[in-house]
Design a protein around this nucleic acid. Structure first.
Lengths: 237, 237
DNA sequence: AAATTAATGTGTGGTAAGTACATATTTATA
DNA sequence: TATAAATATGTACTTACCACACATTAATTT
């Protein structure tokens, strides 16, 4: 998050006083959720003057004594309480003018979480879920970062079992398909979707059925254990 | 490039004096070439004591007034004279201990160039081409960076016409296939390879033949203009 | 309890893509 | 003129992809 730069903490005073090497490094988290058949993203109200009224991604400066790839976990833990999610590095954004308060380069990560299960304290600190499709403008270059992460996510979900993180442990194939449709932004054929998922061998049949529906219930499945929390090809730091 | 940190220039003195926010940001370039049917990478001798005898990638610190994505072009231009290549951002590496002289986070880029055409001045400044397969150990975490970039490259070449940058403007299908085999590290079936390339519609038939061979010459092709210098999906900064 | 509603579960045929594989042809050289 | 080495090309087989339809189940309504 970029707002730290305007807060007048001791450490940041130092940064702004450097006359030559005044590049700062931050991380930004694109946290996707799923609710009401829509793909959501977690945003916070920007408190930079330049961006008043706009929302921004969750981020913070990287500390000198923390691994880059650890920083987004810290940010997420601090802001939402979440500490059991998988974060994937996507891209690093470093145009000169991207941050109004100075030179800040940021590395973007994305993650998928189950909105309903992780009850994060949204109320304080102006944290809100927003429908990805409704987002027009964000602070900084965060719209670009969001778009880049969404593209990456779309490219991943057929290869790697990541979309499951948006759902509760038990889910029906219909629910799963709706998640895929929300991410990809298209309707899918039910039979073909089921075939595709079946050959991947990601799912465990729980021999349970949905309950309390006003229609025929579907079978419930869970992601097989060996596929949990894994995501992309390169886990490099 | 990381060696800058040990050079006692004025600007770097300042960096090492920062007591809190002493994170530096660099870029590293994985420059692939192709020669003698092998995939090569351009390396420079590390002049850090800690890594004496080892080679490292081409890199430098990002300047406060330059775009992150511009930095690797500058590095490449300075070190090799090359200025008409396409560089693709791959990943940012930021473990705490990755640089012995301090906290340096680096963004990795890769590029493919035609070794024979771009006659770079390799002699001075200890620049050499190395066979990717022979590389055991590099300075810093550069072996990891190399591996990550190579994986990314392997994943790209069937989607995007990037491998062509390793060849001269005119090439035969046999030469192209050999490039693919060198990158992927496998043998390919000639007829199937040609079919796959044909459907992509990347090539222009030049109605010329190879010359001065001790065997039957093949037709020569060139990459169609509209495919030049394009590479990956996300061209984000 | 019978009818209605709304969703689940499953299979097939057609098309496109991928793979394995063999023979005739061209050029340079001996 | 014969030989060596590489080019050029096509077919049958298998696998993946896609469009599409019907019988079944459970809950709700009448």
């Amino acid at each position: 998050m970029e707002k730290a730069l305007q807060l007048k903490t001791a450490e940041l005073e130092k940064i702004s006083h450097l006359d030559y090497f005044n590049i700062a490094l931050s991380v930004d988290c694109v946290i996707f959720g799923y609710d009401n058949k829509e793909l959501k993203v977690l945003l916070i109200k920007s408190d930079l003057e330049e961006f008043s009224g706009l929302y921004s991604l969750l981020g913070d400066l990287v500390k000198p004594d923390e691994d880059l790839d650890s920083a987004p976990y810290r940010v997420l833990k601090n802001r939402t309480g979440l500490d059991d999610v998988y974060l994937e590095q996507v891209h690093t954004f470093g145009s000169i003018g991207r941050h109004p308060s100075g030179r800040v380069i940021t590395t973007a990560y994305y993650s998928l979480i189950d909105i309903t299960h992780h009850k994060l304290q949204l109320d304080h600190n102006e944290l809100h879920w927003h429908s990805v499709n409704d987002i027009k403008k964000l602070a900084f270059d965060h719209k670009l970062i969001l778009t880049t992460c969404l593209e990456q996510l779309r490219g991943q979900i057929m290869e790697n079992p990541v979309a499951f993180n948006l759902l509760q442990d038990k889910f029906s194939l219909r629910e799963l398909q709706e998640v895929y449709e929300a991410i990809l932004g298209v309707k899918l054929d039910r039979r073909n979707f089921r075939k595709k998922i079946a050959v991947k061998d990601w799912l465990q049949d729980l021999n349970e059925m949905e309950r309390n529906l006003s229609h025929r219930p579907g079978k419930l499945y869970a992601l097989k254990k060996q596929h949990k929390r894994k995501s992309s090809k390169t886990g490099a730091s």
